[in-house]
């Protein structure tokens, strides 16, 4: 049985390579990465700028196509999916949190969270229930009708986390989620994510430069020149069995 077929395996990559065509000097952004992430992990990808963190995150998230190798999410090889299949796959399986929050500025916090469920064609009752549940979990029930411009950076990022979770994804990919936040706000956001990980067993994978995130992560994968230089398990993860 392949390792990616393991019941708890959420992400599995094999020989994953991404080469950007730079003319005479092609750039090997991700180099032969073998990675195995299980359900409930709270993992960070760290490394210097240009080490391939974001590219690896994009490949895992199906936003980019590998030059070589495979990416399995659960039992689906997403490297073989077409562009439209990938969009549909992302909608139902992957949550994204971006560095710049990227909320829809014309929608309220509630509508931003609800939007992804509308794309999934969930019922109104289900949407309403989930939105309130998520707002409660991120501690923003009182900001339900606020637009992004009326929220602080930390509040916007918490709404972005709730939006990422709204679709009930297999895992959440967060690209430098604390980069634009001050220390206190970043700590609050991380507290929220850790809580969701511990209580809801949500799988989080971060790319980050932020020591605060690294300190809270239980698994730290260090990338250098696109390859895994180290893979450190700091403590026992909340991996779900069965």
């Amino acid at each position: 049985m392949d390792s990616h077929n393991h019941e708890n395996c959420v992400i599995h990559t094999e020989d994953l390579t991404k080469i950007y065509d730079g003319g005479a000097f092609p750039v090997r952004a991700v180099n032969d990465v073998h990675l195995h992430i299980e359900k409930g992990e709270f993992t960070t990808l760290v490394g210097p700028s240009g080490s391939g963190k974001t590219t690896l995150l994009n490949l895992i998230g199906g936003l980019d196509q590998p030059t070589q190798g495979k990416v399995w999410v659960k039992d689906v090889d997403i490297s073989t999916l077409s562009k439209s299949q990938l969009i549909d796959f992302r909608l139902h399986n992957i949550g994204f949190v971006f560095q710049a929050y990227n909320l829809i500025p014309v929608l309220t916090a509630r509508e931003n969270i609800e939007f992804v469920m509308l794309l999934q064609k969930r019922s109104k009752a289900e949407r309403k229930k989930r939105v309130f549940q998520l707002l409660r979990e991120i501690g923003m029930e009182d900001k339900i009708n606020h637009r992004p411009a009326q929220l602080s950076g930390g509040q916007q990022q918490r709404v972005a986390v709730a939006r990422a979770l709204a679709s009930k994804p297999q895992f959440v990919l967060a690209d430098e989620p604390t980069a634009n936040l001050d220390s206190k706000t970043a700590k609050n956001l991380l507290d929220t994510m850790v809580k969701l990980n511990e209580e809801e067993h949500i799988t989080f994978i971060f790319s980050t430069h932020d020591q605060r995130v690294m300190d809270r992560a239980r698994r730290v994968i260090t990338l250098v020149d696109g390859a895994i230089a180290s893979d450190e398990l700091k403590e026992e993860q909340h991996i779900i069995i069965g």
């Binding site: 998230g61 936003l63 439209s84 969009i87 549909d88 992302r90 909608l91 139902h92 949550g95 994204f96 971006f98 710049a100 990227n102 829809i104 500025p105 992804v116 794309l119 999934q120 939006r163 990422a164 679709s167």
Partner: peptide
């Protein structure tokens, strides 16, 4: 552009 990229990332298909 960035917002549209985000919409595509979170699963908004071309038709929508």
């Amino acid at each position: 552009v960035r917002e549209i990229g985000m919409l595509m990332a979170i699963g908004m298909n071309s038709i929508r």
